[in-house]
Amino acid sequence: MQSVTVTVNGQQYQRQIEPRLLLSDFIRHELRLTGTHVGCEHGVCGACTILLDGNAVRSCLLFAVQVEGCEITTVEGLAPDPEVLHPLQQAFWEAHGLQCGFCTAGILMTLIPFLEENPNPDEPQIRAAISGNLCRCTGYQHIVDAVKIAAEKTRAEHA
């Protein structure tokens, strides 16, 4: 067993874990943050995407022992309070950007740094950005619409 201390959504956690514990399982089973979903567990589906020190990464391709001292954001860290959605979540709600919702957390976490780096993306850029996230319900069209709405609103707020 090995000790790991990590900050998740602003809160510090310390746990004793086996080195082979995947970060995705650590987040879900040890921290009980089940918003991060586990799909393929080999880095293909993108459902488990989280932010590690601000970068979107697959949590199923990291061991929890590797994130000692790191800052992690999961989907639970997006909404400012239980009654108010993050602007990106709000846009997904408005554009019907999800059906079953299994892929949504991973897609949101992929898009947060993407929109920060690229506040005015065109459609090919949006599609390239979410190319590493599989959605089997929507056919992606409404997801792309949601990203456009979110980008527009964010730009309007900053204008």
Partner: peptide, 12 residues
């Protein structure tokens, strides 16, 4: 570089 897998993979 952009041809390699996806952004999340290239981050790591």
């Amino acid at each position: 570089m952009p041809h390699i897998a996806h952004p999340q993979i290239r981050n790591r």
